[in-house]
């Protein structure tokens, strides 16, 4: 792991189980709403042990990072820029899930010379949040975690049969959600809900991009993801079957293989 101080607060990053160094290619994984670095554990380790310098940050207020959750995707984008400065990263590959994919789009648009490739998982050009869920999250009602866990996983994932032996995917996701500090899930969902610059930033992205789509994703639907693909000049699409919004856990192997074929085999 690695830690820096950003905006006077501790910023925690997992590193995939080994420290990276400046000579290696950099890759940064950015989590979604109410998540933290743990959601990338079945992808980030592979990169760290295959010659990449890996950073998996906990956004402010999440996981092991201090501070309050950031209020907008733009603020998160600027925070990632500061993290790259602090870590001495000149150029990087960026991978983002859900809210994290919106952050990736902003970084790729605003700091184009520092981003050599992006992967968008569970992505869309807009991310409206169900008003009932938003209201529950605002009240810090624990049912909000149940709702997100229920909706984020595809119908097939509700049966389990996980690639990670013996892990009950819904139970694990629920406990990860329950670790959130009060207010954090609402803050994230609100940042998604009020994000309006999707189309604009997508139009500015020049680097190669892959979009990894869960066939049964009901939060960022394949239809919405297709819009993103169509708007990107350099977009490639991977469709994961029997997969909802939580592809990193629902189809960890296929998700990793898609990332490898995008960034490693393609090189």
């Amino acid at each position: 792991m690695a830690e820096w101080v950003i905006n006077h607060k501790k910023a925690f990053c997992a590193t995939g189980g080994r420290p990276g160094d400046a000579e290696q290619r950099s890759i940064i994984f950015i989590h979604g709403a109410g998540m933290d670095h743990i959601c990338w554990n079945l992808q980030s380790r592979w990169f760290a042990w295959h010659g990449w310098s890996v950073l998996v940050p906990d956004l402010p207020g999440h996981g092991r990072s201090e501070g309050r959750a950031l209020l907008s995707i733009e603020q998160m984008c600027s925070w990632i820029g500061k993290l790259m400065d602090a870590a001495g990263i000149k150029t990087t590959t960026l991978v983002g899930h859900s809210m994290g994919s919106a952050v990736v789009l902003h970084v790729a648009a605003d700091m184009a010379d520092r981003v050599d490739g992006i992967a968008l998982l569970g992505a869309a050009d807009v991310m409206p949040v169900h008003p009932g869920l938003l209201e529950m999250a605002q009240r810090n009602d624990p049912q909000a975690y149940e709702l997100v866990t229920s909706w984020a996983h595809g119908q097939q994932a509700h049966f389990g049969h996980n690639q990670q032996p013996g892990i009950w995917i819904l139970g694990n996701a629920r406990q990860l959600m329950r670790r959130n500090r009060p207010g954090v899930l609402f803050s994230d969902l609100n940042a998604c809900n009020t994000w309006t610059k999707g189309a604009k930033v997508i139009g500015k992205v020049k680097c190669p991009a892959v979009i990894i789509v869960g066939e049964c994703d009901q939060m960022t639907t394949p239809k919405r993801a297709q819009k993103v693909v169509d708007m990107l000049p350099n977009g490639r699409r991977f469709i994961l079957q029997d997969c909802g919004h939580m592809m990193m856990q629902e189809q960890p192997g296929q998700t990793l293989d898609a990332l490898i074929s995008a960034f490693v085999k393609a090189v």
């Binding site: 389990g160 049969h161 032996p165 013996g166 892990i167 009950w168 819904l170 139970g171 694990n172 406990q175």
Partner: peptide, 16 residues
């Protein structure tokens, strides 16, 4: 065995 592990986790409400 993994099916059994997930099944008991689901029935107990555990993570794994």
């Amino acid at each position: 065995i993994a099916v059994l592990e997930e099944r008991v986790s689901a029935l107990e409400g555990g993570v794994g």
